[in-house]
Write a protein that binds this DNA or RNA. Sequence first.
DNA 1: ACAGGTGATGACAGCGCTTTCATGAAAGGC
DNA 2: GCCTTTCATGAAAGCGCTGTCATCACCTGT
Lengths: 344, 344
Amino acid sequence: MDEASKTPRGRRPTIADVARLSGVAPVTVSRALNLPDLVNGETRQRVFDAVSQLGYQANTAARVLAGSRWGTVGVQVPSLDHIMLRHQLQTFEAELRARNISLLISASNYDAVAEKEVIEAFLARGVDAILLTHLEEPDQIYDLMEARGVPTVMMASPGTPRAIRKIGYDDAAAMGEVADHLVGLGHRRISMLGDSRAQLNGAARVNGLAARLRHHGLDLPDHRVIRCGHEEAEAKAGFDGLMDVPVPPTAMVCGNDALALSALARAQERGIAVPRQLSVTGFDGIEVTGHPLISLSTIRAPWRRLGSGAAVMLLDAIEDNTPQNVTLPVEFIARGSTAPPPAE
Amino acid sequence: MDEASKTPRGRRPTIADVARLSGVAPVTVSRALNLPDLVNGETRQRVFDAVSQLGYQANTAARVLAGSRWGTVGVQVPSLDHIMLRHQLQTFEAELRARNISLLISASNYDAVAEKEVIEAFLARGVDAILLTHLEEPDQIYDLMEARGVPTVMMASPGTPRAIRKIGYDDAAAMGEVADHLVGLGHRRISMLGDSRAQLNGAARVNGLAARLRHHGLDLPDHRVIRCGHEEAEAKAGFDGLMDVPVPPTAMVCGNDALALSALARAQERGIAVPRQLSVTGFDGIEVTGHPLISLSTIRAPWRRLGSGAAVMLLDAIEDNTPQNVTLPVEFIARGSTAPPPAE
DNA sequence: ACAGGTGATGACAGCGCTTTCATGAAAGGC
DNA sequence: GCCTTTCATGAAAGCGCTGTCATCACCTGT
């Protein structure tokens, strides 16, 4: 077997191998693959044949070095086991994979230091763009992104005054729907079990509820609000704290579904009938809330659309389109955990 | 300002810029950064200063092209919204991030063609290793990995005769525990609602149950097994198919928790009391199974340990350690969905 | 028949880094 | 004092690809 026709073994085939096999210059192979219009149909076919025969695939690093894009975007998440994030990521990934873009995903663990490291790692790896989903210190990161000029999209986080592309939904408006529903059922004493971890979201939800209640002539005094972590024990303690007061509420609005599930569990343990004695609402719309044994009234946020929307936005951002700010609608789903309050 | 000391503007600083600023050759900069022991302490410091002054970060494409590691591993998953996978990925990611390794994650959508594309994309980008979690056509992919010589670990998938590093748990043994539990409670007529999607897992679980029942002198006839997809409607139809027979079972073993949840839902709809009239078991141990309103007896697979174990294994694989095959123990958790069968 | 396209292809340089080999200086052994 | 080691650094090549420019053959209109 002479040198010229030798098939590479072990080594990955390079553009030179393809060129040799198809009897053209390497540059013609490159053209056949990237700018097919510029090469003669017959030649092109020969190249394609050689490509498939060798199983050739261009070396991405070499391509990038020679001037093109990595086709890789960095995705920052608080944690990979986040219950809703997976839906957002799923559609986001699908949308981008269809365009041959790969995802570099890193978790920042709700930690400001780790979060910065994650972003720097993305930058070091030369990603074409970055998707942000949860920041502990947004400003620090935004500054970094601006300094580097990397296209960025912030997903599903509440508003910020900074001029950054973002796509999300309106926490306050969603809580408004919850308020409308409960007040419509006749509730006057409403408490809120809020999430203390996602500070910004948590605050937006509490404030949104308070604002809408005020609109109905009700208020949400501080003693009717407890914000706690997502641990079940903490949530249950929060539940107790809200119920063990002289005049307990007839409805408990929870900052997210996990808290609501804990509230339901605690109510069950304490023999408080839901919804007869107490109405409970969630927020997020995780699947299990629809299970007949749970049947939690909740807000369904548009997780999947958020993901695909973010993908489109990011693609625009890479092409350097103007920044935009999309807000997706949410939907309240009334199920079996809410009912009119008990007669006094 | 003379040419030699000019700070690059607009352009990203390159190794040459750092070299110029610190008065050494580019190669010394490279060494100071990658093999610091080989350069004089004083020189090294000058280089570091220049690096931080310029904010220099090595160009990844160039590094990779020149032969070093990218510090990135590819992770193939069936879908990013997979309910358990997120736990595995969470610990896997944490373990690798601690070592400065990033994750390129792609979903193959339970599709053989997409799955191959995903792997090829990893290969094209030059990942240092690959984690596989669910393959439609394992052999095709294993061949590819072997041909390219990329370190690979298969996670949480049932055994294969192929010599590949893998970490998982024993589906059959787990189902054996379920069988023991139910038979111990006195059940004789046991049906199984299996998962049709994850072919291999599904089969291993059905077979594991059958084998252990046989050991107890019972059998699992074909008419007591229905395998269906994960859609709720399908699962419910499967439930009906198993119950609407002349002699219905007293226990229903489900191939995963999602199926079990659907079974519980359907039982509730049909007024079949669980566990008084029918015992139900799941498999996977998703959080919600522990909720008091659900209280599903199930198998808890070691998801998180699977993830961290896979990470360690992959790291070993990169260093070219010998292939291994780890099997993690599973645990049956008896909850409120199982009880002795009703008296006949 | 000839200048001026047009179409197809190739030669060459260079992207920014690392690897290999060469060089020179300092240090040690006889 | 000369030769061999060690240490520190540099020069050069090359990773695999794509951009640019050059080349050559062929065609067109006059």
